[in-house]
Amino acid sequence: MEYQDILYTKQDGIATIMINRPAQYNAFRAQTCEEMIHALKDADFDRTIGVVVLTGAGDKAFCTGGDQGTQDGGYGGRGTIGLPIEEVQSAIRDIAKPVIARVNGYAIGGGNVLVTICDLAIASDKAQLGQAGPRVGSVDPGFGTALLARVVGEKKAREIWYLCRRYTAQEALAMGLVNAVVPHDQLDAEVKKWCDEIVEKSPTAIALAKKSFNVDTELIRGMGGLAMHALKLYYETAESAEGGNAFREKRKPEFRKYQK
């Protein structure tokens, strides 16, 4: 595959997948998802690779979720909602190698979900994390909610989704959403250090450990698949459209008028 939206490199047993849409704060569209799936599968099959790093281009954003600027009622790709994000999430979980989120900036919405799903997360002290779904007429009714509750606790997960606040890297560390926070100029060195330690370990033992960890939350995958069909119906409502329209028009959404 010829990549347009990501940069994919391999070196010293480390595969790096970088979302390369900095002008869009590394928000993903259907094409981005297809390329991420392809790269994750390639890294999985490559026996020289021991760990994968997922990140975003530039210093401003890790990933800010689905590109609302291109949605306009539908993302235009395949999958239940026209965006194969379910497959991206499954690919991160299914690859028999640890995936480390290198959180270099904003990890908002679907970007925060990616951080949640990755095996490990290392954040710059400039990073900010949080959800935006209910603010823009969307939600991630699978790993983004249920797995998040396992990671940070149910009360905190509900706070994150209901209030759509942003959290500093240190706050994310305190709630268990990331593993480490370092000064921004030390982020690459810290990520490399963690990767090197993993690459030294038995790949089979690591794979077995990852698969074992996933067993406990595997039910979420089926629940999420079912919920995505409900999400598709929601996206077809005026209430959901109001969120995207308000975002593009840079105004406060008026969701309650659609409840009359």
Rank of each mutant, 00 (worst) to 15 (best):
residue 3 Y to H: 04
residue 7 L to C: 03
residue 7 L to F: 00
residue 12 D to W: 09
residue 15 A to W: 05
residue 15 A to G: 06
residue 21 R to I: 07
residue 23 A to R: 15
residue 24 Q to Y: 11
residue 33 C to T: 12
residue 36 M to H: 06
residue 37 I to K: 03
residue 39 A to V: 05
residue 42 D to F: 06
residue 43 A to L: 05
residue 48 T to F: 08
residue 50 G to C: 05
residue 54 L to V: 07
residue 55 T to H: 03
residue 56 G to H: 05
residue 62 F to C: 11
residue 65 G to R: 14
residue 65 G to H: 12
residue 71 Q to L: 13
residue 72 D to Y: 12
residue 73 G to K: 05
residue 75 Y to T: 13
residue 83 L to E: 06
residue 84 P to D: 06
residue 104 N to E: 01
residue 106 Y to G: 07
residue 106 Y to T: 07
residue 110 G to I: 12
residue 110 G to L: 12
residue 115 V to D: 09
residue 117 I to E: 06
residue 121 A to V: 04
residue 122 I to K: 01
residue 125 D to F: 00
residue 127 A to N: 04
residue 130 G to H: 11
residue 137 G to W: 00
residue 137 G to L: 00
residue 142 G to C: 09
residue 143 F to S: 07
residue 148 L to V: 13
residue 149 A to L: 04
residue 149 A to D: 02
residue 152 V to H: 10
residue 158 R to V: 07
residue 169 A to Q: 06
residue 176 G to Q: 12
residue 181 V to G: 02
residue 188 D to Q: 01
residue 189 A to Y: 06
residue 200 E to S: 07
residue 205 A to N: 03
residue 208 L to P: 02
residue 211 K to T: 05
residue 215 V to P: 02
residue 220 I to T: 04
residue 223 M to V: 08
residue 232 K to Q: 14
residue 243 G to E: 06
residue 243 G to T: 03
residue 244 G to Q: 12
residue 245 N to D: 11
residue 247 F to W: 15
residue 250 K to V: 11
residue 251 R to I: 07
residue 251 R to K: 03
residue 259 Q to E: 09
